[in-house]
Simulated assay, not measured.
Amino acid sequence: MHIKADPDGKETADRDNNELTEGRRDRREALLSAAIDLFAERAYENVSVDEICARACVAHGLLSYHFGGKRGLFAAAVSRVWKDLTSFEKPQEFETTVAERFHGYLSRHFAYIRAHPARFRLMMRTAHADKEISEILRSTRRGAIREIEAALGCPEGASPRLAMAIAGWADFVDTVTLDYVEDSSFSVADITDMCAQVLVASVRSASDMRVDAAVELETLARVTSPELWI
Rank of each mutant, 00 (worst) to 15 (best):
K4H: 14
R42H: 12
A30Y: 00
I136A: 06
T140N: 07
T192Q: 00
C53I: 07
L62S: 02
E147H: 04
N46P: 01
H2N: 12
P117F: 05
K70F: 08
N17K: 13
G168N: 14
D16M: 11
H116S: 05
P226F: 05
P91Q: 02
G143N: 13
L199C: 03
R210T: 13
L62M: 11
S159N: 03
E149D: 11
L228W: 04
D26M: 11
L199G: 00
E218M: 14
F110V: 07
A165S: 15
T126K: 00
I36W: 00
L63N: 04
F120W: 08
A111K: 07
K83M: 10
P155M: 07
V47K: 00
P117K: 09
I36Y: 00
T140D: 08
Y44H: 15
R42F: 05
D37S: 12
D171N: 08
E149I: 08
A40Q: 01
E156P: 10
T219S: 01
I148T: 02
G143R: 09
R138S: 10
M1Q: 09
N18D: 12
A35Q: 02
A150Q: 12
G168S: 13
G157N: 14
A167V: 03
V211Y: 01
F74H: 11
H2P: 05
F102V: 02
A115H: 03
I148Q: 12
V98C: 06
A30G: 09
L62C: 08
Y65T: 05
K83R: 15
V173K: 03
V203E: 04
Q92P: 00
T175W: 05
G61P: 04
E156H: 10
R121Y: 03
R15F: 15
H66M: 04
M209V: 06
E95W: 13
D130R: 04
M164C: 01
G72E: 12
R142Q: 11
D37R: 11
G9Y: 01
S185C: 11
A127M: 05
A206P: 10
E93Q: 04
Q92H: 10
V58C: 06
R146A: 12
P160A: 08
